[in-house]
Amino acid sequence: MLNTDLNLAAPDDVYEALVALHRDLTPEQSRLVNAKLILLLANHVGDAEVLRQAMAKARAGIAPAGRDGTRPVTA
């Protein structure tokens, strides 16, 4: 079960560290760092159900306005 209550002893320190991580990066570099961070944390968490709940929480309230490179095809 995803814990959405405070679980950090020093929340401001952690938030600051997340922001500081990107201070001198381009958007593309930031995207790579964030991706690495997510993969490292996902593996550390390990519980696929918790990860799915976190993914759903992260997506909630965002109306899709993009599309990816795949296209439906009929043959």
């Binding site: 995207r31 991706a35 997510i38 993969l39 990816d68």
Partner: peptide
């Protein structure tokens, strides 16, 4: 398929050097 999936791919390959899970 998009910039996010490219970032995850490149992140996986970069981590694979020293992280077994990747």
């Amino acid at each position: 398929k998009n910039e996010a999936s490219r970032a995850f791919r490149d992140a996986t390959l970069a981590l694979a050097r020293d992280c077994g899970f990747a």
